[in-house]
Each structure stands twice: as structure tokens, then as C-alpha cells.
């Protein structure tokens, strides 16, 4: 980092401030008006609205209601994109082998002890924001990303060997991930199956009852709104994102000994 670069960067940010000052003085475009799109307004109004039971999803968090109820199919395909990227990394590094019994190294005792205390608390926090995704800010993806921090901490502090010792293998994680994806599909087609049995009309990804179908997922548990299928989707999404990110972290932190075969195999093909 040279002093000249810092000066240029500072003058660049001053340029931004001066341009915005000029536009402000001239009085051009208006930003942050009180008006929002009518679609967003209707989402805000109907997301938790017991008086319109055909439109509501009983979720206090509007973003989570949009993600898993109003635009559920979109999010499902996004989850499959994550799966596809893991499979793409597998094909790139094909032929690697996991050597389980190498000597672990890791950092000093101070760091290890501090990490040991922090890990259960991170697990509790991640599960808290995932299971309360319909009540407070948070949801499946947030919880999964927070849980994946644990595996990155373990790789950084205890080394990859400790993950193998705890029973993590990338193939097992991919299997868990596939099972959770199937679970997500089962939750999505449950209303369809119930409608088929009862011989009434019902839809895929249906959450609450609609105008022409009375089938609905459970909306309350004890004293808090469960928001129907949103809770189940959040739990499955937590596991999917956690296993996906952990698999990618493990594959990208493989040692040279383990990767040697993968690159040798490729040379033979060429």
C-alpha cells in the first residue's frame, strides 16, 4: 500500500461526496419517497392477517413469508443451485481420496480452549434464529451460514483432521444434503397428497387454505404462530446450507497428498 494510492482513494471518496452535494443543490432526483410498490404493500398487509385467512401465511417476519410461501418455488430452485455447485466442485476434483489418519496440528492451547467454549453457543444461536424464522429476523439460510462458521473455525483452529475425527466425510454430508432436499420436496407435496386422498382441490407448495381449497398446514404451536410449512422449510434449509458449505470448505482445504491422485488421473485422460 503506497501513500499515493491512499491519497487517490481518499480523493475518490471526496469526489463522490462533491457530486452528491452538487446534485443536492440543484435539486434533481428524489430518493426515499414515502411511496412503495403496491405488491410490497400487499405483502406487508397480508403476511400476518387473521382477518383474511385466504391470503395470509401467519408469519410475523414478512421476508421469510415471501421466501417460503409467496415465492416458494423460486427459493426451492435456488437451493438446487447450491447443490449443483457442490456437484461441480466434485467433478473438478474427481479422484481425490480422504486420508483420515494423518497427524493433526492445530494452534496453541489458548485458542483451542476458547474455541471449545464458543462452539456450543454458536450452535444454540444458529438453531435459535433458524427455528424462530417466522417470529424474529432470521431463517434457514441465516442459521445454516452461522452453523457453517463452526466448521470453518474447526478447520482454522483444530485443522481438517479433527473434522474427520468427529465423523465428517464429504460423501456422508452430500447424502445428508440429498435426504434434506427430498424432505423439502415431501413437505411441498404433502397438501397435494392430502387433497388426493380427501378428493378435494389442492396445490403444490400450498401453505394456508385458499378460496377453493380448505387444506392448511398447522398455523399455531402452543402459543406462537408456526406459520405452517415455513417452520419445516427453515429446518430443512438449515441442514442443507450447513452440509453444503461444510462440504465445499472440506473439499477446498484438502491437503496436497490427498489431491495428488486427482490431478494424476486427469493427465492420463488427456
Amino acid at each position: 500500500m503506497i501513500k499515493r494510492d491512499v491519497l487517490v482513494a481518499f480523493s475518490l471518496s471526496l469526489l463522490v461526496l462533491s457530486i452528491s452535494l452538487i446534485i443536492w443543490l440543484e435539486g434533481y432526483i428524489r430518493i426515499a419517497t414515502p411511496i412503495i410498490s403496491s405488491l410490497g404493500e400487499s405483502y406487508l398487509y397480508y403476511s400476518y392477517n387473521p382477518w383474511y385467512s385466504n391470503y395470509t401465511s401467519f408469519s410475523l417476519n414478512v421476508v421469510s413469508a415471501i421466501i417460503w410461501d409467496y415465492r416458494g418455488f423460486d427459493t426451492f430452485l435456488e437451493t438446487t443451485v447450491l447443490m449443483a455447485s457442490i456437484i461441480a466442485i466434485y467433478t473438478l476434483l474427481r479422484g481425490f481420496e480422504e486420508k483420515v489418519f494423518l497427524q493433526p496440528k492445530g494452534l496453541s492451547t489458548i485458542t483451542k480452549t476458547a474455541t471449545k467454549i464458543v462452539i456450543p453457543l454458536i450452535i444454540a444461536y444458529a438453531l435459535a434464529i433458524a427455528t424462530h424464522g417466522q417470529l424474529t429476523p432470521g431463517g434457514g439460510f441465516q442459521g445454516g451460514a452461522t452453523l457453517a462458521v463452526i466448521s470453518s473455525l474447526i478447520i482454522a483452529v483444530y485443522s481438517l483432521e479433527f473434522l474427520y475425527y468427529m465423523g465428517y466425510r464429504s460423501k456422508r454430508l452430500v447424502v445428508i444434503r440429498g435426504l434434506c432436499l427430498i424432505g423439502l420436496i415431501i413437505v411441498a407435496i404433502t397438501p397435494l397428497l392430502i387433497g388426493f386422498i380427501l378428493n378435494t382441490k389442492s396445490y403444490i407448495f400450498q401453505n394456508m387454505s385458499k378460496e377453493d381449497s380448505f387444506i392448511s398446514m398447522p398455523s399455531f404451536l402452543f402459543d406462537a404462530p408456526l406459520a405452517g410449512s415455513i417452520f419445516f422449510y427453515n429446518v430443512f434449509e438449515l441442514l442443507i446450507v450447513f452440509t453444503g458449505l461444510t462440504t465445499a470448505l472440506m473439499l477446498l482445504s484438502l491437503r496436497d497428498v490427498e489431491l495428488k491422485k486427482a490431478f494424476e488421473v486427469r493427465e492420463v485422460y488427456e
Binding site: Q142, A145, T146, A148, L249
Partner: peptide, 24 residues
Amino acid sequence: MAPDLFITYIPVSVGITPLLLFLL
């Protein structure tokens, strides 16, 4: 005022992406 994105972005930008880049 996007608390959901706030919770998502902290582990992604401070935890996972730098670790992936450091490994690379």
C-alpha cells in the same frame, strides 16, 4: 432496515468468504 440480510451477511462476509480466499 434489513435485519434478515444483516444476520446473513455477517457470517458470509466475515467468516466464510475470507476463509475460502485464504485457503485458495
